[in-house]
Computed example of a mutant assay.
Amino acid sequence: MAPVLRSVYHITAFSGYAFVVRSLAAKGGEELPPGIFVYGGPWKYLTFLNLLLQMSFFGLAAVNDLQPGSKSQSAVNRWKDFLFAVFAFPVGTFVVLFFWTVFAYDRELVYPATIDSFFPPWMNHSMHTVVLPVLLGEVLVQPHVYPQTKQALAVLGTVGSAYLSWIIWVYLSVGIWVYPLLGHLSTSSLVGFFILNMSVVSLLYLLGDRLNSHVWGKRTNTHLETNK
């Protein structure tokens, strides 16, 4: 894709996510559905954290586009690729797949109907639908250099474990699960559920790597092939 069009894509995506985050922040003064932001506010929801993640990635990508001269060896470019490969693509894709899978089964387990009056449909889809096509578009917009698989999965697993510890802490502190689904699971089922989710996120990382290689061939990551 031409550099100008790539820059427009990144700036548009960043602006869109920034608008959604700003719209969510503006709702802080409204009457909230019971329990929605109890303890930890929106910071306990993976959906909100993912919005910040996507906004940060596309903001970094836009900054990288504006760098003069060669960008391939710049620190900004390396961080941009790392953020996309290890976090933005697998976590963003997971949020969409997990949300709509559970929603289709029983929406009350993940997005109770009482929230509809608080989050309009456009905001719901901005958080849980649009993320995936925008990420797939990014795969087509430009190639990304992926890190060594073992290192990437180790980092992803560490961050995932930290988030799981956070939502368990929220439950132990106020007795409310971040997602109603978790309240229906036994202790052993919770462990299995967490392991399953981490496995899915890891597979999504590998999927992103495969898609990147399929679309762009070995032009950008030949030097990494021997490290994987």
Rank of each mutant, 00 (worst) to 15 (best):
V4R: 14
V4D: 11
R6K: 15
S7Q: 08
Y9R: 00
Y9A: 15
H10S: 14
A13Y: 03
Y17F: 09
Y17G: 12
F19S: 11
V20E: 06
S23A: 15
S23I: 02
A26P: 10
K27D: 11
G29K: 04
P33R: 06
G35D: 07
I36Y: 14
V38K: 14
G41H: 14
Y45F: 12
F48R: 06
N50T: 12
Q54M: 06
Q54C: 12
M55A: 15
M55T: 13
F57P: 02
L60Q: 01
A61E: 00
A61Q: 01
N64H: 03
D65R: 02
D65M: 07
D65K: 00
G69H: 11
S70K: 13
S74I: 00
S74G: 11
R78P: 01
R78T: 12
A85F: 08
A88K: 07
F89P: 00
G92R: 05
F94C: 07
F94K: 01
V95S: 06
L97I: 15
F98L: 15
W100N: 14
F103Y: 13
F103N: 15
F103S: 15
Y105M: 09
D106L: 08
D106E: 13
V110A: 10
A113D: 12
A113P: 01
T114I: 15
T114C: 12
I115H: 12
S117L: 11
F118R: 12
P120I: 09
W122N: 09
H125K: 02
H125I: 04
S126Y: 00
M127H: 07
V130E: 00
V130I: 04
V131D: 02
L132W: 02
L135T: 07
L136C: 00
E138K: 06
V139A: 11
P147N: 07
T149Q: 09
Q151S: 05
L153M: 01
V155F: 03
T158W: 06
T158F: 13
Y163V: 05
L164H: 10
L164S: 12
L164M: 09
S165C: 09
W166F: 15
W166G: 00
W169P: 03
L172T: 14
S173G: 03
I176Q: 09
I176G: 01
V178W: 07
V178A: 10
P180T: 05
H184R: 14
T187C: 11
G192Q: 08
I195C: 08
M198K: 14
V200P: 01
S202A: 12
L203E: 02
L203V: 05
G208F: 12
G208K: 05
L211R: 01
H214S: 13
H214M: 08
V215C: 06
K218I: 08
T222E: 13
E225T: 13
